[in-house]
Amino acid sequence: MKHSMKVNLQVWRQKNTQAQGNFENYSVETNPDMSFLEMFDVLNEQLIHDGKEPVAFDHDCREGICGMCSMVINGNPHGPKQAITTCQLHMRSFNDGDTIVVEPWRANAFPVIKDLSVNRSSFDRIIASGGFVSVNTGNAVDANNILIPKDIADEAFEAATCIGCGACVSACINASAMLFVGAKVTQLSLLPQGQSERQSRVVAMVNQMDAEGFGACTNTGACSAECPKGIPLSVISTLNREYTKAKLNGI
């Protein structure tokens, strides 16, 4: 059994969207095999035991795929390691006695609900504005009638692995959602399905993205570097190209 370790936490506490928040200090006995969220479970157990209010944080699958967990840890979305989500981070990535600062995603388009939980419905609305192929159930042709070369399918898949967690927005100095939108636009523009709405889709999605209050991209690349799924920056150039083409076509 690995020995226990102790960490000091500075956790953002905020009662609700309107309230002013502040950092609170806690110290937690943990061990290296614990996941970061399990360490928060321990903290909450402790807080409940002491008659205090536990820290609200979003989490669900705890295996890195649902996209629900969302903590900025020492300034990095999903913590210091690359290509993983917060729930996949383990305490062995920290040292005994470390002080760890934990904050919510911060962006006006992701208002804080409470403590570390934020509202990411803006992402849903972007998808609702055009992130789909307009095909009603029952309208499909036989699947093998649509041939897609393996490399195209693989590239589309790579873009489609986005989990919609919002780390890209939280990492971006401009709180831009271009990586998220670019991933969906790239996936759908690569595939033969839904080509008829290719141009209207990208314009609608970018309009919605702007309306939601995300910032403009300045190509810093922080989004891709922090993306737990490693969505490449090239999806943004694809988005730029698709959008510009559509606009120049008068869409």
Binding site: W12, E103, R106, V112, G213, G215, A225
Partner: peptide
């Protein structure tokens, strides 16, 4: 762009993203 994040982060990233 500066207006898109009214509440700033309390810590800055250690890893350079």
């Amino acid at each position: 762009n500066m207006k898109k994040r009214n509440n700033k982060y309390g810590s800055s990233p250690k890893r350079t993203n």
